[in-house]
Design a protein around this nucleic acid. Sequence first.
DNA 1: AGTTAAAATGACAACGCTGTCAATAAGCTA
DNA 2: TAGCTTATTGACAGCGTTGTCATTTTAACT
Lengths: 327, 327
Amino acid sequence: MKTVSRVINKEPSVRKKTYDIVMEAVNELNYQPNLAARNLAGTSSFTVGLVYDNPNAYYVIDMQNGVLSRCKDEGYELVIHPCTYTDANMEADFITMIKRSRLAGLVLTPPLSEQSSITNLLDELNIHYVRVLSGRPTDDDQDTCIYVNDYKAAYEITTHLLAHGHENIGFICGDKEHKSTSERLEGYKAALADHQVKFNCDFVYDGKYSFESGVEGAKTLLADNNKLAITAILGGNDEMAAGALFASRLMGIAIPEQLSITGFEDSPFSRQTWPKLTTAHQANDIISQHAARLLFTKTRGARNQDKDIITSFTPSIVVRESSGPKQ
Amino acid sequence: MKTVSRVINKEPSVRKKTYDIVMEAVNELNYQPNLAARNLAGTSSFTVGLVYDNPNAYYVIDMQNGVLSRCKDEGYELVIHPCTYTDANMEADFITMIKRSRLAGLVLTPPLSEQSSITNLLDELNIHYVRVLSGRPTDDDQDTCIYVNDYKAAYEITTHLLAHGHENIGFICGDKEHKSTSERLEGYKAALADHQVKFNCDFVYDGKYSFESGVEGAKTLLADNNKLAITAILGGNDEMAAGALFASRLMGIAIPEQLSITGFEDSPFSRQTWPKLTTAHQANDIISQHAARLLFTKTRGARNQDKDIITSFTPSIVVRESSGPKQ
DNA sequence: AGTTAAAATGACAACGCTGTCAATAAGCTA
DNA sequence: TAGCTTATTGACAGCGTTGTCATTTTAACT
């Protein structure tokens, strides 16, 4: 019995021949170790949690599927934990989850992953976690964070527009509280600076990462457009870009002839508009897979380490029909 | 120790005084029973599974959140199980899941819940399940199914259009294989019949529940519109209705002045179009909560039965700006 | 072959609960 | 109040694994 346990857990000190015999039986019986028993008996747990407060359904599903695919492969189970950061009893909620099932660790997604109150709580409770964060990687934290380099992606998407001759480029921001908002804005500013285009704060609209705020943003930026002469709008995400596209259409502006619009994230939104959005592809399923792998590596001892984990991702620009040369 | 167990599980034969003492300690310590131990020791399990193959992220998230909210209250944990019905090793996948963690039961969502091959497999494995189904409730199966009466909702939405003077009403269908498609189509037909409007199969377009197919559907139905003289289009879901709306706009058709468009489901799609879509509100979070409650009732013995479970839901029509009187 | 060290295997308790059944306390009757 | 019945409580095993440590087997030497 103990030998089977050794085989299942890939422990050393099992003869090749014994290993093969056990594996044959395992395959024949389609044996699956009972998770409850493993969690109860062992020092390590086979349950990981995914925590999110992001309202974007596409994003959440992608993250879930990515983590889940790794969990399946490695024999872990996933507990999903949606929450609202503003929720007063969030802390109690966390503790309940942790007490009910001992966890191998948690994957935290933005914007919740940016909150130090959460990480402090987890540090206090001695819970492993991996954070998915928007931003440029730092040297430390490479073993607890996955970075999505929104800065660089925004830089590139802005550069794409500049290369097409646009200079007066509007920017519709997301929620100010989110790190991704400032990262994307910084990338935009840096690209302008590198191309000797002066930054004009009148070109920036504070949105909310929602379709409605995209509509409002475009209306505001394009109102009385003689003054600003905007020829391109960079949406902080696809949802807002879709809103901007719609607003432009209502105003009788031809896309991309009179105005280029770009999004961010490459969510299904970007393909449900007409024309389809130029955007920055964010591989959320891959990102979350790596987050899960990083968590497993942290959890397990020195053995079974996973060396090919990517901790920094840069969304890649996808050029579609919503952007084109300035005319 | 056993007495605490009795209190936690609301078993009889505990004196009121003892109960209070235990509960006080439970509250003070914020005691949470360990799920792994309960699953291992008891005859019943505290884990439920949610199975889905629906690609609609909004739908999936709603279903998850509904089931999850009940699980939290009742001390159950949720295992999510996305799958593709076409997946060849889906059966093996099911069995793996079931072996890894003994389940109290499964909630099956459409369209997967319509497949008898799945329910047969589960019957064989002796796994409890509750199905969420599109359609009119039948007398039997009230204790294993939650019905969403798409027929009635489509009837009502069609009646709404008829009441506004529309007679030539296009219908963009979803996937033929899905029960919801035929139910919605039948409801549409029944409403026409009850208002002495002849059904014309030229008004029906076979779509795929996708934005793109909505675009194609509207283009097809409205092409050469002198012939059909369509003044309203009923979308099989919001996504297709949004596509139809977009196509109409491109064709220079004013909504709702020249054409009324309606959706189905009241997903965020219906609020991200302009004008916003008239649609049928489907309370997926409530529906999934009741599915979970029904499953708990099936799982537990006679005690702790939940009497207020609704097993039949009819989406209610929400009138917004995309529909209006025929002009 | 005999000795010794190292590698491989096995025996057994323990994880935190629940089910079973025995023991005790409470309530009731005469 | 004794003697009974019933309600309540407690003792103990067992769920399916893993960790610890003892035992056996193998390999590597004289």
